[in-house]
């Protein structure tokens, strides 16, 4: 079980945290891993906090519970830092990745003394610069792949292009923007 990576996503309904978790499962699968990607739904409405999860492993995954002690946490919406206990159970050998325009020093006091690595990315800036609209999940997907070292960047970008080509077969014009968002996010994550 030592090869098991567990990731928890905190977002708000409508921001694409579930989609990001499913895309991460997808791309990890393409590199030969066993994967799980699944959402935990509370009230089904836009803006309500939602949680999504990923397990990535070299061996078959049988457990079907939620993830309580993840190595990595992704916070899609920084307003959740006040609303949800995002560092609950987070391993200090791991990291938390937060979507924010603020510097790390301003974020750390909100993390209840979390001792592990704190990473940030301004997904709004990346998304607006590359896609012209706010889709935080694409930049965050690239950022967590880098932070968690899930695969090398070249493989990631190659697999994502294939995945987008399939997903956006009916609107290929958005593929380049999404790819640019991934590349910029790989550079921008701090």
């Amino acid at each position: 079980m030592s090869n098991l990576t567990e990731i928890r996503w905190h977002g708000r309904g409508g921001q694409g945290a579930k989609t990001a978790a499913l895309l991460l499962a997808d791309v990890a699968f393409q590199t030969g891993k066993y994967v799980q990607g699944f959402p935990e739904y509370g009230p089904e409405r836009m803006g309500a906090p939602i949680t999504a999860y990923n397990r990535i492993s070299d061996t078959q995954i049988r457990v079907h519970s939620n993830i309580y002690d993840p190595q990595y946490v992704v916070v899609v919406d920084e307003s959740l830092l006040e609303a949800v206990d995002v560092t609950s159970g987070l391993k200090k050998e791991g990291a938390i990745l937060i979507n924010t325009a603020r510097p790390r020093e301003e974020i750390i006091p909100h993390l209840k003394g979390y001792e592990g690595k704190v990473c940030t990315i301004d997904a709004h800036k990346v998304s607006m610069a590359t896609m012209g609209r706010y889709f935080p999940n694409t930049p965050l997907l690239a950022a967590i792949v880098k932070v968690a070292g899930i695969m090398d960047e070249e493989t990631f970008l190659r697999e994502m292009r294939a995945s987008f080509s399939h997903k956006f077969a009916s609107k290929p014009e958005v593929i380049d923007g999404n790819m640019a968002a991934l590349k910029m996010a790989l550079e921008e994550v701090r």
Binding site: L22, A25, D26, F29, Y34, V35, Q36, G37, F38, P39, E40, Y41, Q60, I61, H64
Partner: peptide, 12 residues
């Protein structure tokens, strides 16, 4: 099958 736990979970 189990709602959400398998119906909405992506697995190999």
């Amino acid at each position: 099958q189990d709602g959400f736990i398998t119906s909405h979970a992506v697995e190999n």
